[in-house]
Nucleic acid binder design. Sequence first.
DNA 1: GGATCCTTCTTCTTCTTC
Length: 351
Amino acid sequence: MFIFKRVLVVSGILVPKSTALPLRHFSAPSCLRSPKRNSPYSSVDSERYSSLVKSVMSTRVSSQTPETLSAEDEHMYGPVIKAQTPPRTEVRTPKTLHPFLNCEDAGEPEDAESGPPVRIGINRGQGRSSVPSVTRILQQTLSQEQIFYLERWKRRMIAELGEEGFREYSQNLFRQGKRFHSALEEILTSDPSGKDKSVSETAEYPPDIQGYMESVSHILRDVTAVRAIESTVKHETLNYLGVVDCVARYRGVLCVIDWKTSEKAKPFLSNTYDNPIQVAAYAGALNNDGNYKYQVESGLIVVAYKDGSPAHAHQLSPELMLDYWKTWLLRLEEFTEQRSIQASGASSENR
DNA sequence: GGATCCTTCTTCTTCTTC
């Protein structure tokens, strides 16, 4: 096992790619946001210990060097296997920085928030069959690191539950997620103004989602002016589509909202993996879809818990949305490249 | 009515010491 891990580390599979963006969100307690501030070293009299620090730093304590360590590793574990594709450590930028907002649609009609929420169904019957979805693009462009950890998790779960048990477990997670979404849809459609969210706290729900609904009830109190529910958005220039869970105001800010259920606590935005990219992709599509006459600059990821403990709400500022929009454009470029490679491979096979 | 699509979820080193 140890040898295996060494090889992976050296080959770069475990080296994080630059998909993780800086942690900047509204819900992190300040004490957790800046752990360095509370470092025990901050109280150390640095002048008093400066000579000691200098002497330690200037003296080679060990006779080992990177070269001797490499030689030792090779002796113990065999020659180092290097990855064919080295990890990308540089900060990547999209080849074309498509705008997140559509300036032509910036004007917002006064009565935009008065009607019921829209729900545009998916329509693939009119030549849309080749338009890829946000979910598919994200799934097909996962990093090697993400694939590694997901497969490891799956292997461990199957070892614990068996193939059939794992299938049931996965189906159950999906079922709960779907029912949770349906219940929210019902609440928000029946009360889009947001005046009476108490319905969510008193109503009875199926036992498997009761906790999730309790978990999210304090968030729903801050959701108003629901404009869209489970509605299809399509980027007219970039040619991708998706289905937004909800477009509404959260604490007065118009957001694309994504509801999530989770077994593990996700108190930080960084715990939500690709969810912020998904939200930015939806918002960018909505902003460039003629069916929607307004622009959305912010996003919200709500993570609900089965035991009813308060859901975490990660609000993405316009600045952060732009960062994730760039990450999305990179993923989209990667997907398009993959597709063209596959297409050229298929055409050469047909010859 | 059946088939297909979009979603629904899942990941983050590991051990020792205090």
